[in-house]
């Protein structure tokens, strides 16, 4: 039942868009018609530049995500093991966690220039603090009874981490990862759009400033489809991997 409803609403939305841009109120405005946009989108699908841009953006997001993960999980486990470490880092991490990466673009652009490295750096900056906090809370959340039991059986710290704390943190990390992947894509686009890093973001900026309006809209559509596809993919993978967690 869902797909037809989605199809109907998509068609209706496109019809409204077309009507608005040909009849009223956006006729002869700079807003492109639905048909022009979709035609442009169709053309772009057969251009290697489009796919190169998509790949560049995904690459920045993926690389940044993996680096953030590699830093955040060990670090999160470490600070999660001690209440003192957790409280010591809480304020600092919370501070950086809520600072959006767009804020530091004016500096990163000076240091890195409008490059892919800048994009990757911004993605890491955007994800690493939230992921570390999430991991630390997961590790802290381990059932104390489980730890006591393991101590009673004489199991050491390493085993406690491997067999109790990490599995307990896994659902927390999974939530963190799900949010992070979408965030990584967004930041990779922002890095291009605002900081000039190569990829879809920069393409978007260039087509907007050069007045290629149909292409501007087409790229926004591509970003929407890409974002949707990636978030679906992550949910799909996580359902397979973390089967013991209900969400």
């Amino acid at each position: 039942m869902r797909a037809p409803a989605g199809l109907i609403s998509a068609v209706v939305a496109i019809v409204i868009w077309q009507a608005a841009t040909t009849i009223w109120p956006l006729a002869n405005s700079s807003v492109p018609t639905a048909t022009a946009t979709l035609a442009r989108l169709w053309e772009m699908l057969f251009m290697s530049e489009t796919w190169a841009s998509i790949w560049l953006t995904v690459q920045m997001a993926l690389l940044g995500f993996l680096i953030a993960l590699a830093i955040a999980i060990p670090f999160g486990v470490l600070i999660g093991l001690s209440r003192f470490a957790l409280i010591s880092t809480k304020f600092t991490f919370d501070f950086f966690k809520v600072i959006p990466p767009i804020v530091i673009i004016p500096i990163t652009i000076l240091v890195f220039g409008p490059t892919q490295q800048m994009g990757v750096f911004l993605v890491v900056f955007a994800l690493v603090f939230a992921l570390a906090i999430q991991t630390a809370y997961g590790v802290r959340d381990t059932d104390p009874v489980l730890i006591e039991t393991m101590k009673c059986y004489g199991l050491g710290r390493t085993r406690q981490v491997l067999y109790a704390r990490l599995p307990a943190a896994a659902p927390f990390i999974a939530v963190g990862i799900r949010i992070s992947v979408s965030a990584a894509m967004i930041v990779a686009v922002v890095a291009g759009l605002v900081g000039g890093a190569p990829g879809l973001g920069r393409d978007l900026l260039l087509s907007q400033t050069s007045g290629e309006n149909a292409q501007t809209f087409a790229i926004v559509l591509i970003l929407g489809i890409l974002g949707l596809a990636i978030s679906r993919l992550v949910v799909l993978i996580q359902r397979r991997v973390i089967f013991w967690s209900p969400s």
Binding site: S29, S30, V31, I102, S182, M185, I186, V189, V190, L193, V194, G201, L204, L205, Q208, N213, T216, F217, I219, V220, L223, G224, I225, L226, G227, L228, S231
Partner: peptide
């Protein structure tokens, strides 16, 4: 699913 910042060019248009 569209990155919010990517809508800014649309609003400029």
């Amino acid at each position: 699913s569209i990155p919010p910042v990517a809508t800014v060019p649309v609003f400029i248009l």
